[in-house]
Design a protein around this nucleic acid. Structure first.
Lengths: 212, 212
DNA sequence: AAGGTAATGGCACCGAGTGCCGTTTGACAG
DNA sequence: CTGTCAAACGGCACTCGGTGCCATTACCTT
């Protein structure tokens, strides 16, 4: 007794076929968000524009706030895999920087799209708030890696603090990226993580690197 | 034409007197939250229990989610003052640790109350999410201090990253505090901020300090 | 007593989200 | 071709948070 339209490419043993996809609804929704803004776009609007019933919308997305998140769960799996692929000799902070920066490397084609996504998430208050719940999963991935490396419990202060801090600087990098039209996300991300790894022991006003 | 009941102790030039206070509603609400849980307590319940109209509740609190936050705005002013009171010779990270740890020092009498507050904020999903909006103000206070000290724009990567990171480790400390019955918040907070200042350059599994 | 002002609280309304349930659409078996 | 089962659809009704509007109440001042 499935509750949710089949998002996998599984053969589907029987039953009616999904009328649309998450991605399709997402696209439609983004169009509306940019016209009227997120708050002024109702779920009815989205459903109507996507040609589905309001009730069906909620089978594809648990909430309106989840629309901009795409397949975040799947992306976290990718990040977990990156951590798993790190050589054991690589120091924790180096691995962290490599993985997080690599994870957030986006190719030219999707950059524009990703900017729109992140602009929404980081500027609309309701989405800023909602993001916290998603970030928790991100942090968990980091904390698990750190804890494993340091042979500590996941919920120990150190892995948790580091996960929280890493998330923080990553978000700061994103915000900076959105604020500066020409900036490269990876570079900002590396700068932010480098600052974190150095304990923010900056030596003066002109210490912030700025790279291509 | 005031929209909000007078929370100051101002003489009140005329007009009807407020029927209650934020604090009073807060107390009543906390009682209900602990009985039925946050989600299962409706605003009507709170209003009824407080002996006010539902509409009036929303004049005291912008939302149900704001109930556990008390006078956070005022507390941030106190934190700002602490930063301002830091001697200029004190290195940024030292000042940060001193201020944040000091800011979160709570006296014995209020500890129990504060725990309830934070348990709600850090465990109820809706409140976890909502907290982000409050944290933004907290971060701003930190970022402004750091930016001033380093002679950088507030929205530069470095102050923002540090503010985000500091918030992160502070939250981690709080979570740890809630998880460990006997723990002292200040000690955890200092440990977390020390780890941050050291760039998490831990030397092995047994590095986490545990103090009084 | 009169007038101004501020707080109250009822009412109607909107939008998000959920449970329920009948309907539609397909795949597969006979 | 037909019956059956499974899955997706979508309408309906309902709850709850939140807001705009506005008449009413209570207090202070003159």
């Amino acid at each position: 007794m499935p509750e949710v339209p089949d998002q996998t490419n599984a053969p589907a043993r029987g039953g009616r076929r999904p009328a649309t996809t998450r991605q399709e609804i997402e696209h439609v929704a983004f169009g509306l968000f940019e016209d009227r803004g997120f708050e002024l776009t109702t779920v009815d609007d989205i459903a109507a524009a996507a040609g589905i019933g309001r009730r069906t919308f909620f089978r594809y997305f648990p909430s309106k706030n989840d629309v901009p998140w795409g397949d975040f769960h799947g992306e976290l799996d990718r990040m977990r895999a990156r951590f798993a692929g790190c050589p054991a000799e690589l120091p924790v902070m180096d691995a962290l920087r490599a993985v997080v920066a690599g994870f957030n490397r986006i190719d030219q084609a999707e950059e524009r799209w990703h900017r729109r996504r992140m602009t929404l998430i980081l500027t609309v208050p309701a989405l800023q708030a909602h993001a916290t719940l998603r970030y928790a999963d991100w942090r968990r991935v980091v904390a698990e890696f750190v804890a494993a490396r340091l042979a500590l419990p996941v919920d120990d202060l150190l892995p948790q603090a580091l996960a929280h801090a890493a998330l923080g600087v990553a978000v700061a990098a994103y915000e900076r990226w959105l604020a500066t039209p020409g900036a490269g996300l990876s570079a900002l991300m590396e700068d932010a993580l480098a600052a974190l790894a150095s304990g923010f022991q900056v030596r003066g006003p002109a210490t912030t690197r700025t790279r291509g």
